[in-house]
Amino acid sequence: MAADPLIYVLDMLVFIGIFSLLAISLNLEYGFTGLGNFGKVAFFMAGAYTYALMIETGAPILVSLLGGATVAGLLGGLVSLPALRLREDYLAIVTLSFGEILRLFVKAQEGFTGGVHGIQVPAAFTAFVASPRLFGLANVVLVYLVAGVAFLFVQALINTPYGRVLRAIREDDVAVQVLGKNPVLYKVQVLVAGSFLAGLAGGAFAQYMRFIDPYMFLPLVTFYVWIALILGGPANNWGAVLGALVVEIFNRGTRIAKDYLVLPVDPNNLQFIMFGVLIILLLLYRPQGILGESRLRTPAFRRWEHGAADR
């Protein structure tokens, strides 16, 4: 497989797509609403395992994907309930620990989830399994369809009065209350929607990998998503996609560098040094990320933009 460069490119594309989807979902939560979800991987994992268990019973791929997303979304709502009434940093702590608890739980469930041995995921594209190239291509199409729909969904949701309230909550949720809106309701909805999208990514991941185990869902995955979003530009969906691309290229690039560089340490670890340096430089010189926040586009904005001249 490693001998075929096309497979390598397809594999990379699939991962960029999955990471983009995760970054978009974190963007909805953190970039637009200011919710620091440090348990992204938990909802990704919930989606992946639910997908695996559903497809095993013979459910169609779309149903299994939506099933995984729904379970992840419900978990997102559940986790948000105790945390949202407290200060923001508690949400970070609660979600981070939830991610690890869920992973340890799955790891302990030998009979149900395969525990440490993981779980085989029957391929959905049975016709393509014989050819790795076709299988890769089918997955690229699937992942980008799902990510594309998610992108359009978040984009549509954000450029509305609803999206305006979300950004306002990020700035000052007491002022939002004084203007007659209940921030808790919005935050729960956003965490459900964000976790739903992460669950979709999990399903796509499980279907592509055809095998999942608890060690694929370490907290590190969450931090990769955060790096992608902070690099690309929070509150900008294009920034989330760009960040996912950069993270994935760094991740792969350092793995390729392994073949060419002779270092006293594993060159694979170079990526962490590089991410660290990059983030420090970015936060110093361009804290808004590579792309910076996108404007809120509603008819009110457009009316003003075009109407200012003839007033």
């Binding site: 509305t160 305006r164 950004r167």
Partner: peptide, 23 residues
């Protein structure tokens, strides 16, 4: 207590009552 990264226009519109698009 303004929303400092939002535009002046958005700050004002946020205060309007019963906006359908807020659900």
């Amino acid at each position: 207590r303004l929303f400092y990264r939002l535009t002046v226009l958005d700050n004002v519109i946020l205060a309007a009552r019963r906006q359908r698009g807020e659900s």
